[in-house]
């Protein structure tokens, strides 16, 4: 559902709530009782059905999925304070002194009637930034709607930055990673490009890595994630890195602690990143950004 364009021009969605508001007609047409709102940049496996059952059981107007985060990191998240019954009493966006360590996961279930009313109110408020976290949720809470927290246990990662994107990928390499991509009961489906199997040559070393179809590995690969059709040439070394589809690490090049974008050629003899450095490098066709 891209933003609309009309005779008088088009406009981008102004915020997360505005994106839903602009498509109210579509939701009305489907005539749902409940609406589940998700963000596309979080990584987790969750059975939304259980959350919906909880929402119905609690007879809430809105249910927000929360996860316990370490206390010292709590000030980076939207923090919910809930009573014993799971009812949210307070919501604070990135508080300096958090009262709880329950962070909002950006997963909401609303009763459609309630959400629709608040979206309309929000759209008519010129001062609003039309955002769920900043506007809709605080407003509903202030109006004493029944808002419940649904506690989720398991892997959850917000990938808002290059570093967290890199970290989320690296998490997959740890032996006990909770995401378990190999679980047959909860497959992750994706577009399949029908590529041939990967080839590992007799010179290659591949250790603690995830490698996808169509890759050709002739170099040294350690603690890395290779997307499809990546080529690691003779004498090249890749460690602690994420290499996206179609990239080539040429002969003798070294790539450490980096995210290499699609279709990039890391030229012969180039060296990117330090093996145990704390920075993560984003390598695109035009530039290398250090984070």
């Amino acid at each position: 559902m891209p933003p609309f364009t009309s005779e008088s021009g088009g406009r981008w969605y102004k915020g997360t709530a505005n994106a839903i508001y602009e498509n109210v007609n579509f939701i009305e047409y489907l005539d749902p009782n409940y609406v589940l709102i998700l963000s596309g940049d979080h990584i987790y496996k969750m059975d939304y059905k259980k959350m919906l059952d909880y929402h119905i059981e609690k007879q809430a107007h809105c249910t927000i999925s929360v996860i316990e985060v370490p206390w010292d990191e709590a000030s980076r998240f939207g923090i919910m304070d809930a009573d014993e019954d799971g009812r949210i009493t307070e919501f604070a966006e990135k508080p300096e002194n958090p009262k709880s360590n329950l962070a909002s996961m950006g997963i909401y279930i609303f009763n459609w009637d309630a959400l629709k009313a608040y979206l309309e109110m929000d759209a008519n408020d010129p001062d609003s930034s039309n955002d769920f976290g900043k506007n809709i949720i605080p407003k509903m809470l202030a109006d004493k709607n029944k808002m419940c927290a649904y506690t989720f246990e398991g892997y959850w990662k917000d990938v808002g930055t290059v570093k967290s994107y890199w970290e989320a990928n690296m998490d997959l390499l740890s032996e006990d990673n909770e995401l378990n991509l190999y679980c047959k009961d909860w497959r992750i489906f994706t577009k399949n490009r029908n590529l041939p199997p990967q080839y590992v040559s007799d010179r290659a070393v591949v250790k603690n890595s995830l490698v996808n179809e169509g890759c050709i590995i002739d170099g040294h690969l350690e603690k890395s994630i290779l997307f499809s059709e990546v080529s690691v040439e003779k004498g090249a070394k890749v460690c602690n890195s994420v290499i996206l589809s179609g990239s080539v690490i040429e002969e003798g090049a070294t790539v450490c602690n980096a995210v290499v974008m699609e279709g990039v050629r890391v030229k012969k003899g180039t060296s990117i990143g330090e093996e145990n450095g704390e920075h993560v490098y984003l390598v695109s066709k035009d530039e290398i950004i250090k984070e």
């Binding site: 032996e175 991509l181 190999y182 992750i188 199997p197 990967q198 080839y199 590992v200 040559s201 007799d202 010179r203 290659a204 070393v205 591949v206 250790k207 603690n208 890595s209 995830l210 490698v211 996808n212 179809e213 690969l221 994630i225 290779l226």
Partner: peptide, 17 residues
Amino acid sequence: PSTFYKDEAKVSNSLIA
């Protein structure tokens, strides 16, 4: 999912799905 090469893996001249 992608193929996972663990710490002890030693692979040479092979085709892997």
